[in-house]
Design a protein around this nucleic acid. Structure first.
Lengths: 195, 195
DNA sequence: GTCTATATCGTGATAGAC
DNA sequence: GTCTATCACGATATAGAC
């Protein structure tokens, strides 16, 4: 998804493009696809709204550019699912939580959760990603019956945990240490996968 | 929240008020608070958009009126948490799933999930309900350490299950029989509550 | 009770000046 | 590269006719 535009960094540029992208990430994350406006994104980036269109075209284009997670499922899934089988559940929970502690991942993740659950455009976008890219990849590597249902159950617990912790920010789970959540939620994932 | 308006049913009325309320439920459920429009609600109810304002005032008023769930937490929570302790997890999952099979509950529930995760207005509304009404009530009846965190974990799994099954409608979990989900998810809730 | 007409605002998007 | 000016559109909301 690297745009050819990146080549040869704009001459006297003040990196407006980058700031717009960061602002879009935050706005989409806080307000969802529909709630975020080109104007609010431009204002947050400290530029004019027309400049947003100039760089990224339509609002949907901007979303697509801001949305692609820095998590490649085709490399991450095999990495996590290999290794000691009886710790897979904990590894999944820990990997995701540690990823979400990184600013840029959490922003993108929250944004995707919001738009997936909250609105018209996000729904096919994220649901398509989940059910065509991620979940089948997980199910394929499980040599157990009902692999698809198990993958769905894992997704349900992971999604619920992320929503309550990072989107709704309900206490005390919002500030619980990662180790504690790994200890509590890891066995759940383990059970869904292999019991 | 029963409006005094209900008294003495409009004389030659054609029940537009009721149809508007039903339409609002569906529109909010399908598109979220921001996505639903007064016009779309009016169109679905087969009336003029001005009539919606006439009956319910602002859009937020209409939402508030449509949103109040027919599930009283102060009566439901004690009912479920009493009874055999080692089946509490399964009872919770079964009760919620069976409730969501009823049309009017599922509509309101999906609407609340959407707006809670997806947008500005819903978030304080639903988060406030959860963290001031429902979760403390659950935590209060648990005689275990970390009761609040346990209640949060239960909420995370329940919310995730509802989102994946009823909002995103990802297969196969979307069409899985209730008994199967009770069997798989019940023990998770049980573990979160008492282990 | 119901709808027409309209006021007002904020949105996405474009053209073009500097 | 960046912004001013503007357009077309659809939104909420109100006033008032019937």
């Amino acid at each position: 998804m690297t745009k050819p535009r990146e080549r040869g960094r704009p001459k006297g540029g003040s990196d407006s493009r980058g700031r717009i992208l960061a602002a879009a990430l935050e706005e989409f994350g806080e307000r969802g696809y529909d709630g975020a406006t080109i104007r609010s994104i431009a204002a947050r980036a400290g530029v004019d709204s027309a400049l947003v269109h100039h760089y990224f075209g339509t609002k949907a284009d901007l979303f697509a550019e801001a949305a692609d997670l820095p998590l490649r499922p085709d490399v991450v899934v095999p990495m996590i699912l290999s290794g000691p089988r009886d710790e897979v559940g904990e590894r999944i929970v820990r990997y995701i939580l540690e990823a979400f502690e990184r600013d840029e991942v959490r922003r993108r993740g929250v944004m995707l959760l919001r738009t997936a659950v909250g609105g018209k455009i996000g729904s096919p976008l994220v649901v398509g990603f989940l059910s065509r890219e991620l979940l089948p990849r997980v199910a394929n590597r499980l040599d157990v019956p009902d692999a698809e249902l198990r993958a769905d159950l894992v997704a349900s617990q992971v999604a619920g945990m992320l929503v309550v912790r990072y989107v709704l920010r309900i206490q005390p789970i919002a500030d619980a240490p990662i180790d504690e959540l790994v200890r509590r939620v890891g066995p759940t994932i383990q059970r869904y996968l292999f019991d």
